[in-house]
Design a protein around this nucleic acid. Structure first.
Lengths: 194, 194
DNA sequence: TAGAATCTGGTGCGAACGCTCAGGTTTATG
DNA sequence: CATAAACCTGAGCGTTCGCACCAGATTCTA
Protein backbone atom coordinates (compact mmCIF):
# COMPACT_ATOMS: atom_id res chain seq x y z
CA UNK A 1 0.00 0.00 0.00
CA UNK A 2 2.62 2.48 1.04
CA UNK A 3 5.20 3.54 -1.50
CA UNK A 4 7.03 0.33 -2.25
CA UNK A 5 10.62 0.56 -1.24
CA UNK A 6 13.46 -0.15 -3.64
CA UNK A 7 13.47 -3.89 -2.98
CA UNK A 8 14.43 -4.87 -6.51
CA UNK A 9 12.17 -7.63 -7.82
CA UNK A 10 14.30 -10.25 -9.49
CA UNK A 11 11.51 -12.58 -10.52
CA UNK A 12 10.55 -11.64 -14.04
CA UNK A 13 7.04 -12.87 -13.55
CA UNK A 14 6.39 -10.66 -10.58
CA UNK A 15 8.14 -7.78 -12.24
CA UNK A 16 5.83 -8.09 -15.19
CA UNK A 17 2.89 -8.16 -12.83
CA UNK A 18 4.14 -5.04 -11.13
CA UNK A 19 4.42 -3.26 -14.46
CA UNK A 20 0.92 -4.35 -15.29
CA UNK A 21 -0.40 -3.08 -12.01
CA UNK A 22 1.12 0.30 -12.64
CA UNK A 23 -0.43 0.31 -16.08
CA UNK A 24 -3.84 -0.26 -14.55
CA UNK A 25 -3.41 2.40 -11.89
CA UNK A 26 -2.37 4.94 -14.51
CA UNK A 27 -5.49 4.06 -16.43
CA UNK A 28 -7.57 4.52 -13.30
CA UNK A 29 -6.13 7.98 -12.83
CA UNK A 30 -6.94 8.92 -16.37
CA UNK A 31 -10.51 7.77 -15.90
CA UNK A 32 -10.81 9.59 -12.58
CA UNK A 33 -9.44 12.72 -14.12
CA UNK A 34 -11.75 12.56 -17.08
CA UNK A 35 -15.00 11.34 -15.52
CA UNK A 36 -14.58 11.17 -11.75
CA UNK A 37 -14.26 8.30 -9.31
CA UNK A 38 -17.91 7.46 -9.77
CA UNK A 39 -17.29 6.20 -13.27
CA UNK A 40 -14.37 3.98 -12.47
CA UNK A 41 -15.32 0.48 -13.49
CA UNK A 42 -13.25 -2.51 -14.35
CA UNK A 43 -14.43 -2.44 -17.92
CA UNK A 44 -13.65 1.21 -18.38
CA UNK A 45 -10.27 0.92 -16.77
CA UNK A 46 -9.51 -2.13 -18.89
CA UNK A 47 -10.43 -0.27 -22.04
CA UNK A 48 -8.37 2.72 -20.97
CA UNK A 49 -5.38 0.49 -20.31
CA UNK A 50 -5.87 -1.51 -23.47
CA UNK A 51 -6.32 -4.70 -21.52
CA UNK A 52 -8.92 -7.40 -21.18
CA UNK A 53 -11.53 -6.69 -18.50
CA UNK A 54 -10.69 -9.88 -16.70
CA UNK A 55 -7.13 -8.64 -16.28
CA UNK A 56 -8.44 -5.99 -13.89
CA UNK A 57 -10.21 -8.62 -11.85
CA UNK A 58 -7.08 -10.69 -11.80
CA UNK A 59 -5.06 -8.03 -10.03
CA UNK A 60 -7.83 -6.51 -7.98
CA UNK A 61 -10.56 -8.70 -6.61
CA UNK A 62 -12.97 -5.79 -6.50
CA UNK A 63 -13.18 -2.36 -8.04
CA UNK A 64 -12.91 -0.94 -4.57
CA UNK A 65 -9.45 -2.35 -4.12
CA UNK A 66 -8.44 -0.73 -7.37
CA UNK A 67 -9.62 2.66 -6.18
CA UNK A 68 -7.96 2.29 -2.82
CA UNK A 69 -4.67 1.43 -4.43
CA UNK A 70 -4.90 4.22 -6.97
CA UNK A 71 -5.73 6.88 -4.45
CA UNK A 72 -3.01 5.64 -2.16
CA UNK A 73 -0.53 6.30 -4.93
CA UNK A 74 -1.87 9.78 -5.47
CA UNK A 75 -1.45 10.46 -1.81
CA UNK A 76 2.08 9.10 -1.97
CA UNK A 77 3.02 11.71 -4.52
CA UNK A 78 1.46 14.52 -2.55
CA UNK A 79 3.08 13.52 0.70
CA UNK A 80 6.39 13.23 -1.07
CA UNK A 81 5.91 16.62 -2.69
CA UNK A 82 5.18 18.17 0.68
CA UNK A 83 8.41 16.79 2.06
CA UNK A 84 10.52 18.30 -0.69
CA UNK A 85 9.18 21.83 -0.67
CA UNK A 86 11.87 24.52 -0.50
CA UNK A 87 13.10 25.84 2.82
CA UNK A 88 12.07 29.18 4.20
CA UNK A 89 8.51 30.13 5.06
CA UNK A 90 7.91 32.35 2.07
CA UNK A 91 9.34 30.09 -0.61
CA UNK A 92 7.69 27.05 0.94
CA UNK A 93 4.28 28.68 1.10
CA UNK A 94 4.64 29.87 -2.45
CA UNK A 95 5.37 26.34 -3.58
CA UNK A 96 2.49 24.94 -1.56
CA UNK A 97 0.16 27.50 -3.09
CA UNK A 98 1.34 26.31 -6.47
CA UNK A 99 0.46 22.74 -5.59
CA UNK A 100 -2.99 23.77 -4.47
CA UNK A 101 -3.69 26.05 -7.37
CA UNK A 102 -2.77 23.26 -9.74
CA UNK A 103 -6.40 22.40 -9.17
CA UNK A 104 -7.16 25.29 -11.46
CA UNK A 105 -4.51 24.49 -14.03
CA UNK A 106 -3.54 21.59 -16.24
CA UNK A 107 -3.33 19.27 -13.24
CA UNK A 108 -6.79 20.20 -12.10
CA UNK A 109 -8.07 16.70 -12.58
CA UNK A 110 -5.24 15.31 -10.53
CA UNK A 111 -5.99 17.57 -7.60
CA UNK A 112 -9.62 16.63 -7.90
CA UNK A 113 -8.61 13.01 -7.57
CA UNK A 114 -6.92 13.83 -4.28
CA UNK A 115 -10.02 15.61 -3.05
CA UNK A 116 -12.29 12.78 -4.04
CA UNK A 117 -9.97 10.42 -2.25
CA UNK A 118 -10.47 12.35 0.94
CA UNK A 119 -14.21 12.15 0.71
CA UNK A 120 -14.07 8.51 -0.24
CA UNK A 121 -12.14 7.91 2.95
CA UNK A 122 -15.21 8.97 4.89
CA UNK A 123 -16.94 5.84 3.66
CA UNK A 124 -14.01 3.47 3.25
CA UNK A 125 -12.03 2.73 6.38
CA UNK A 126 -9.23 1.29 4.28
CA UNK A 127 -8.43 4.81 3.09
CA UNK A 128 -8.38 6.53 6.44
CA UNK A 129 -4.71 5.83 7.15
CA UNK A 130 -3.90 7.65 3.93
CA UNK A 131 -5.79 10.72 5.04
CA UNK A 132 -4.06 10.66 8.39
CA UNK A 133 -0.76 10.38 6.61
CA UNK A 134 -1.61 13.45 4.58
CA UNK A 135 -2.65 15.38 7.66
CA UNK A 136 0.55 14.46 9.45
CA UNK A 137 2.56 15.56 6.42
CA UNK A 138 0.88 18.96 6.30
CA UNK A 139 1.28 19.37 10.01
CA UNK A 140 4.95 18.50 9.82
CA UNK A 141 5.40 20.91 6.95
CA UNK A 142 3.95 23.74 9.01
CA UNK A 143 5.74 22.95 12.25
CA UNK A 144 8.86 25.02 11.57
CA UNK A 145 6.73 28.08 10.97
CA UNK A 146 3.98 27.42 13.50
CA UNK A 147 5.28 25.88 16.71
CA UNK A 148 1.85 25.83 18.33
CA UNK A 149 -0.19 22.73 17.34
CA UNK A 150 -3.45 24.61 17.75
CA UNK A 151 -2.32 27.18 15.25
CA UNK A 152 -1.37 24.46 12.84
CA UNK A 153 -4.79 22.83 13.16
CA UNK A 154 -6.45 25.88 11.71
CA UNK A 155 -3.98 26.31 8.90
CA UNK A 156 -4.13 22.60 8.07
CA UNK A 157 -7.88 22.85 7.74
CA UNK A 158 -7.46 25.88 5.52
CA UNK A 159 -5.05 23.97 3.30
CA UNK A 160 -7.61 21.21 2.85
CA UNK A 161 -10.31 23.75 2.20
CA UNK A 162 -8.20 25.53 -0.37
CA UNK A 163 -7.63 22.25 -2.18
CA UNK A 164 -11.34 21.73 -2.53
CA UNK A 165 -11.92 25.31 -3.51
CA UNK A 166 -9.28 25.13 -6.20
CA UNK A 167 -11.17 22.21 -7.70
CA UNK A 168 -14.50 23.98 -7.71
CA UNK A 169 -13.23 27.41 -8.76
CA UNK A 170 -10.91 26.99 -11.70
CA UNK A 171 -10.16 30.70 -11.78
CA UNK A 172 -8.41 30.56 -8.43
CA UNK A 173 -4.78 31.56 -8.95
CA UNK A 174 -1.63 30.49 -7.16
CA UNK A 175 -1.08 34.11 -6.18
CA UNK A 176 -4.40 34.29 -4.39
CA UNK A 177 -3.80 31.02 -2.61
CA UNK A 178 -0.38 32.21 -1.59
CA UNK A 179 -1.72 35.44 -0.19
CA UNK A 180 -4.35 33.63 1.83
CA UNK A 181 -1.84 31.13 3.13
CA UNK A 182 0.86 33.60 4.01
CA UNK A 183 -1.63 35.77 5.85
CA UNK A 184 -2.78 32.81 7.81
CA UNK A 185 0.72 31.69 8.69
CA UNK A 186 2.40 35.01 9.30
CA UNK A 187 -0.37 36.27 11.53
CA UNK A 188 -0.48 33.14 13.56
CA UNK A 189 3.26 32.98 13.98
CA UNK A 190 3.61 36.69 14.64
CA UNK A 191 1.06 36.31 17.33
CA UNK A 192 2.78 33.22 18.63
CA UNK A 193 6.00 35.14 19.02
CA UNK A 194 4.30 38.17 20.56
CA UNK B 1 -33.57 26.38 -7.91
CA UNK B 2 -33.15 28.88 -5.12
CA UNK B 3 -35.33 28.45 -2.09
CA UNK B 4 -38.81 28.88 -3.44
CA UNK B 5 -40.45 31.89 -1.92
CA UNK B 6 -43.84 31.75 -0.24
CA UNK B 7 -45.74 32.31 -3.49
CA UNK B 8 -48.70 30.16 -2.51
CA UNK B 9 -49.47 27.66 -5.22
CA UNK B 10 -53.19 27.64 -5.81
CA UNK B 11 -53.23 25.00 -8.48
CA UNK B 12 -53.81 21.72 -6.68
CA UNK B 13 -52.13 19.83 -9.48
CA UNK B 14 -48.91 21.76 -9.16
CA UNK B 15 -49.11 21.66 -5.39
CA UNK B 16 -49.31 17.91 -5.49
CA UNK B 17 -46.36 17.86 -7.85
CA UNK B 18 -44.41 20.02 -5.45
CA UNK B 19 -45.14 17.65 -2.62
CA UNK B 20 -44.06 14.78 -4.80
CA UNK B 21 -40.84 16.52 -5.70
CA UNK B 22 -40.03 17.05 -2.06
CA UNK B 23 -40.71 13.40 -1.43
CA UNK B 24 -38.21 12.45 -4.09
CA UNK B 25 -35.56 14.84 -2.83
CA UNK B 26 -35.93 13.50 0.68
CA UNK B 27 -35.44 10.03 -0.72
CA UNK B 28 -32.34 11.22 -2.57
CA UNK B 29 -30.89 12.54 0.65
CA UNK B 30 -31.51 9.26 2.41
CA UNK B 31 -29.78 7.37 -0.38
CA UNK B 32 -26.86 9.78 -0.39
CA UNK B 33 -26.55 9.52 3.34
CA UNK B 34 -26.64 5.75 3.32
CA UNK B 35 -24.63 4.87 0.21
CA UNK B 36 -23.14 8.05 -1.20
CA UNK B 37 -23.90 10.14 -4.26
CA UNK B 38 -22.42 7.48 -6.49
CA UNK B 39 -25.28 5.15 -5.80
CA UNK B 40 -28.05 7.59 -6.52
CA UNK B 41 -30.09 6.16 -9.35
CA UNK B 42 -33.65 6.74 -10.39
CA UNK B 43 -34.59 3.20 -9.51
CA UNK B 44 -33.06 3.39 -6.08
CA UNK B 45 -34.56 6.76 -5.33
CA UNK B 46 -37.92 5.53 -6.53
CA UNK B 47 -37.72 2.49 -4.28
CA UNK B 48 -36.65 4.65 -1.36
CA UNK B 49 -39.56 7.01 -1.94
CA UNK B 50 -42.00 4.18 -2.50
CA UNK B 51 -42.75 5.41 -5.98
CA UNK B 52 -42.63 4.00 -9.48
CA UNK B 53 -39.29 4.54 -11.24
CA UNK B 54 -41.00 6.39 -14.03
CA UNK B 55 -42.17 8.96 -11.53
CA UNK B 56 -38.57 10.04 -11.08
CA UNK B 57 -38.17 10.44 -14.81
CA UNK B 58 -41.33 12.44 -14.95
CA UNK B 59 -40.11 15.08 -12.54
CA UNK B 60 -36.47 15.02 -13.50
CA UNK B 61 -35.45 14.37 -17.06
CA UNK B 62 -32.09 12.96 -15.94
CA UNK B 63 -30.60 11.71 -12.71
CA UNK B 64 -28.21 14.63 -12.84
CA UNK B 65 -31.03 17.10 -12.50
CA UNK B 66 -32.19 15.25 -9.45
CA UNK B 67 -28.79 15.57 -7.83
CA UNK B 68 -28.52 19.22 -8.71
CA UNK B 69 -31.86 19.94 -7.14
CA UNK B 70 -30.98 17.95 -4.05
CA UNK B 71 -27.72 19.79 -3.50
CA UNK B 72 -29.45 23.07 -3.95
CA UNK B 73 -31.86 22.23 -1.17
CA UNK B 74 -29.12 21.06 1.15
CA UNK B 75 -27.28 24.25 0.49
CA UNK B 76 -30.42 26.22 1.18
CA UNK B 77 -30.65 24.80 4.65
CA UNK B 78 -26.99 25.43 5.39
CA UNK B 79 -27.07 28.98 4.13
CA UNK B 80 -30.20 29.61 6.15
CA UNK B 81 -28.60 28.08 9.23
CA UNK B 82 -25.60 30.35 8.82
CA UNK B 83 -27.84 33.38 8.72
CA UNK B 84 -29.55 32.51 11.98
CA UNK B 85 -26.51 31.80 14.12
CA UNK B 86 -26.48 33.66 17.42
CA UNK B 87 -24.88 37.07 17.73
CA UNK B 88 -21.54 37.60 19.36
CA UNK B 89 -18.30 36.14 18.09
CA UNK B 90 -17.96 33.47 20.74
CA UNK B 91 -21.52 32.17 20.67
CA UNK B 92 -21.61 32.31 16.89
CA UNK B 93 -18.38 30.37 16.50
CA UNK B 94 -19.55 27.83 19.02
CA UNK B 95 -22.71 27.29 17.01
CA UNK B 96 -20.80 27.08 13.76
CA UNK B 97 -18.48 24.51 15.31
CA UNK B 98 -21.55 22.54 16.25
CA UNK B 99 -22.77 22.58 12.67
CA UNK B 100 -19.43 21.38 11.43
CA UNK B 101 -18.94 18.73 14.06
CA UNK B 102 -22.37 17.35 13.22
CA UNK B 103 -20.30 15.50 10.64
CA UNK B 104 -19.09 13.35 13.52
CA UNK B 105 -22.46 12.94 15.15
CA UNK B 106 -25.88 11.65 14.21
CA UNK B 107 -26.04 14.03 11.27
CA UNK B 108 -22.72 12.81 9.95
CA UNK B 109 -24.30 11.41 6.83
CA UNK B 110 -26.03 14.69 6.13
CA UNK B 111 -22.83 16.68 6.36
CA UNK B 112 -21.17 14.13 4.15
CA UNK B 113 -23.87 14.68 1.61
CA UNK B 114 -23.10 18.38 1.65
CA UNK B 115 -19.42 17.70 1.10
CA UNK B 116 -19.98 15.23 -1.70
CA UNK B 117 -22.36 17.51 -3.43
CA UNK B 118 -19.86 20.35 -3.21
CA UNK B 119 -17.21 18.27 -4.87
CA UNK B 120 -19.77 17.39 -7.47
CA UNK B 121 -19.87 21.06 -8.30
CA UNK B 122 -16.33 20.76 -9.57
CA UNK B 123 -17.64 18.70 -12.45
CA UNK B 124 -21.09 20.16 -12.89
CA UNK B 125 -21.24 23.85 -13.76
CA UNK B 126 -24.91 23.94 -12.86
CA UNK B 127 -23.92 23.55 -9.24
CA UNK B 128 -21.30 26.27 -9.07
CA UNK B 129 -23.70 29.07 -8.20
CA UNK B 130 -24.68 27.12 -5.13
CA UNK B 131 -21.10 26.86 -3.99
CA UNK B 132 -20.62 30.54 -4.53
CA UNK B 133 -23.73 31.20 -2.51
CA UNK B 134 -22.31 29.14 0.33
CA UNK B 135 -19.01 30.95 0.18
CA UNK B 136 -20.69 34.31 0.24
CA UNK B 137 -22.76 33.22 3.22
CA UNK B 138 -19.71 32.16 5.20
CA UNK B 139 -17.93 35.33 4.25
CA UNK B 140 -20.87 37.42 5.37
CA UNK B 141 -21.05 35.50 8.60
CA UNK B 142 -17.43 36.29 9.36
CA UNK B 143 -17.49 39.91 8.31
CA UNK B 144 -18.53 41.37 11.67
CA UNK B 145 -15.60 39.68 13.34
CA UNK B 146 -13.06 39.97 10.54
CA UNK B 147 -13.31 43.22 8.63
CA UNK B 148 -10.39 42.37 6.36
CA UNK B 149 -11.46 40.26 3.35
CA UNK B 150 -8.06 38.62 3.15
CA UNK B 151 -8.40 37.44 6.71
CA UNK B 152 -11.82 36.04 5.95
CA UNK B 153 -10.51 34.15 2.93
CA UNK B 154 -8.29 32.03 5.12
CA UNK B 155 -10.93 31.37 7.73
CA UNK B 156 -13.48 30.53 5.05
CA UNK B 157 -11.11 27.98 3.62
CA UNK B 158 -10.60 26.55 7.08
CA UNK B 159 -14.34 26.23 7.58
CA UNK B 160 -14.63 24.22 4.37
CA UNK B 161 -11.67 22.12 5.36
CA UNK B 162 -13.12 21.43 8.77
CA UNK B 163 -16.34 20.27 7.18
CA UNK B 164 -14.49 17.70 5.17
CA UNK B 165 -12.37 16.67 8.11
CA UNK B 166 -15.42 16.16 10.28
CA UNK B 167 -16.70 13.71 7.71
CA UNK B 168 -13.51 11.73 7.56
CA UNK B 169 -12.71 11.78 11.27
CA UNK B 170 -15.82 10.85 13.20
CA UNK B 171 -14.03 11.37 16.50
CA UNK B 172 -13.69 15.08 15.87
CA UNK B 173 -15.64 16.96 18.52
CA UNK B 174 -17.44 20.27 18.42
CA UNK B 175 -15.12 21.50 21.17
CA UNK B 176 -12.06 20.86 19.05
CA UNK B 177 -13.58 22.53 16.04
CA UNK B 178 -14.54 25.50 18.18
CA UNK B 179 -11.04 25.84 19.57
CA UNK B 180 -9.53 25.75 16.10
CA UNK B 181 -12.01 28.26 14.77
CA UNK B 182 -11.80 30.69 17.64
CA UNK B 183 -8.02 30.63 17.50
CA UNK B 184 -8.12 31.39 13.84
CA UNK B 185 -10.57 34.24 14.22
CA UNK B 186 -9.24 35.82 17.35
CA UNK B 187 -5.68 35.81 16.11
CA UNK B 188 -6.57 37.26 12.78
CA UNK B 189 -8.75 39.96 14.27
CA UNK B 190 -6.25 40.77 17.01
CA UNK B 191 -3.65 41.21 14.36
CA UNK B 192 -6.03 43.24 12.24
CA UNK B 193 -6.50 45.70 15.07
CA UNK B 194 -2.79 45.91 15.88
C1' DT C 1 -69.84 18.44 -17.52
C1' DA C 2 -66.17 18.63 -21.39
C1' DG C 3 -61.70 19.09 -22.19
C1' DA C 4 -57.03 20.25 -21.05
C1' DA C 5 -53.24 19.79 -18.01
C1' DT C 6 -51.05 17.02 -14.95
C1' DC C 7 -49.78 12.92 -12.78
C1' DT C 8 -48.99 7.79 -12.33
C1' DG C 9 -47.36 3.06 -12.81
C1' DG C 10 -46.28 -0.72 -15.76
C1' DT C 11 -43.37 -2.68 -19.41
C1' DG C 12 -39.33 -3.24 -21.96
C1' DC C 13 -35.10 -2.27 -24.68
C1' DG C 14 -30.18 -1.83 -24.98
C1' DA C 15 -26.22 -1.11 -22.46
C1' DA C 16 -23.07 -1.46 -18.80
C1' DC C 17 -21.99 -3.50 -14.69
C1' DG C 18 -19.23 -6.90 -11.22
C1' DC C 19 -17.59 -11.12 -11.01
C1' DT C 20 -16.57 -16.17 -12.11
C1' DC C 21 -14.17 -19.66 -14.45
C1' DA C 22 -11.92 -22.88 -17.39
C1' DG C 23 -8.11 -22.98 -19.92
C1' DG C 24 -3.85 -21.03 -22.31
C1' DT C 25 0.78 -18.66 -22.07
C1' DT C 26 4.98 -17.16 -20.07
C1' DT C 27 8.65 -17.51 -16.65
C1' DA C 28 11.37 -19.39 -12.85
C1' DT C 29 13.15 -23.39 -10.54
C1' DG C 30 15.03 -28.18 -9.49
C1' DC D 1 13.11 -31.13 -19.35
C1' DA D 2 9.50 -31.40 -15.85
C1' DT D 3 6.99 -28.95 -12.51
C1' DA D 4 4.98 -25.28 -10.57
C1' DA D 5 4.08 -20.56 -10.04
C1' DA D 6 2.53 -16.39 -11.93
C1' DC D 7 0.24 -14.27 -15.55
C1' DC D 8 -3.48 -13.57 -18.90
C1' DT D 9 -7.89 -13.97 -21.44
C1' DG D 10 -12.53 -14.77 -23.72
C1' DA D 11 -16.94 -16.22 -22.75
C1' DG D 12 -20.74 -15.62 -20.11
C1' DC D 13 -24.06 -15.39 -15.99
C1' DG D 14 -27.03 -12.56 -13.46
C1' DT D 15 -27.98 -7.92 -12.16
C1' DT D 16 -28.74 -3.18 -12.49
C1' DC D 17 -28.96 0.76 -14.96
C1' DG D 18 -31.09 5.00 -17.69
C1' DC D 19 -34.47 6.11 -20.44
C1' DA D 20 -38.50 5.80 -23.38
C1' DC D 21 -43.12 4.80 -24.20
C1' DC D 22 -47.96 4.79 -23.15
C1' DA D 23 -52.61 3.82 -21.36
C1' DG D 24 -55.20 5.38 -17.83
C1' DA D 25 -56.20 7.95 -13.42
C1' DT D 26 -56.56 12.39 -11.32
C1' DT D 27 -57.32 17.22 -11.02
C1' DC D 28 -58.19 21.90 -12.52
C1' DT D 29 -60.45 25.22 -15.79
C1' DA D 30 -64.10 26.95 -18.30
Amino acid sequence: MEATGPEAITDGRRRKGERRRRLLLDAVMRVVERDGVASVSQRRVAAEAGVAPSAVTYYYAAVDDLLVDALTRVNDTYVAALATLPDGADAALRALAGMIAAGSGPDRAHVMAECELFLLAARRPALRPQVERWNRAVDAFLTPYLPDPDDRAGVCAAVDGLFVRACVEPELTAAEVYRTLSRLVSRASRNGRG
